[in-house]
């Protein structure tokens, strides 16, 4: 599937409780492949993802994907539905009134292809068998895979993942992490993985950046 590749460059300041202490104030670039964002609770990891997706409006800065400007503090603003940023929420946010395949078909750019693309992506994420089921009947791992299929079926220019494996344990987390890594490598898009697990971050990501109190603390290369 052809996609215009391109790095995601993010320089943003997001409002916090006080003007002196913004929730996020970073200048960071995410290349093609998986980058992990780590940091303690309240460090601004989720706020950073929401700002990139366009669900929170930064106070200032600039966000670009490949050649296109998504946000510029001087006035340019692309609304979330035109950003092609797929966001996998921590609690997945699957539509409870739609079946698994309808969830995945929701974001398929050509709606007439929705059903076919949904089946393909459910197969690629190994949950083809749950296509007709409602999210409330899925196990944690199945729901996780459906959410990933839904995000990727939208043919995003970048993938944002907010602690996608937080509700899964041990082996399943490892397996899903590896599958995610393979998919992102095949698609050649930037993917930002917010996680608490240093182990996940180091195993899956080409790069790990750390946020603390809204600011970039350090960067370490893989395996450091």
């Amino acid at each position: 599937m052809a996609r215009e590749g391109g790095a995601l460059a993010v320089r943003v300041r997001v409002a916090g409780p006080t003007a002196e202490r913004p929730r996020v104030d970073v200048d960071v670039s995410f290349g093609v492949g998986l980058t992990a964002v780590m940091g303690p609770s309240g460090a601004g990891k989720t706020s950073l993802l929401l700002a990139i997706a366009g669900l929170v409006r930064p106070l200032a800065g600039r966000i670009t994907l490949g050649g296109s400007v998504l946000f510029d503090g001087s006035g340019s603003w692309v609304p979330p539905h035109r950003r092609r940023m797929a966001l996998v929420f921590q609690h997945l946010a699957l539509f409870p009134h739609l079946t698994a395949w309808q969830n995945v078909a929701y974001g398929v750019p050509r709606r007439s292809d929705g059903r076919d693309r949904a089946r393909e992506w459910l197969a690629r994420t190994r949950v083809a068998h749950v296509a007709e089921r409602l999210p409330s009947t899925l196990s944690g791992g199945e729901a996780q895979r459906v959410a990933l299929a839904r995000a990727l079926a939208a043919e995003p220019g970048a993938l944002l993942l907010d602690e996608p494996f937080s509700s899964l344990d041990g082996r399943l987390r490892l397996a899903l992490g590896d599958e995610l890594k393979d998919l992102v490598e095949a698609l050649q898009i930037p993917a930002v993985l917010v996680t608490h697990h240093l182990e996940d971050a180091q195993r899956l990501a080409a790069r790990v950046v750390e946020l603390e109190a809204g600011r970039l603390r350090s960067e370490r290369p893989e395996g450091a």
Partner: peptide, 27 residues
């Protein structure tokens, strides 16, 4: 209605009227 569902719909390319008709209203 959970705001995350509305955010998810928007990031999947749904315009505000489509989000209203396909997510907010059914739920």
């Amino acid at each position: 209605v959970d705001p995350a569902l509305l955010g998810a719909a928007a990031t999947l390319g749904a315009s505000p009227p489509r989000v209203f008709l396909t997510v907010t209203l059914p739920l």
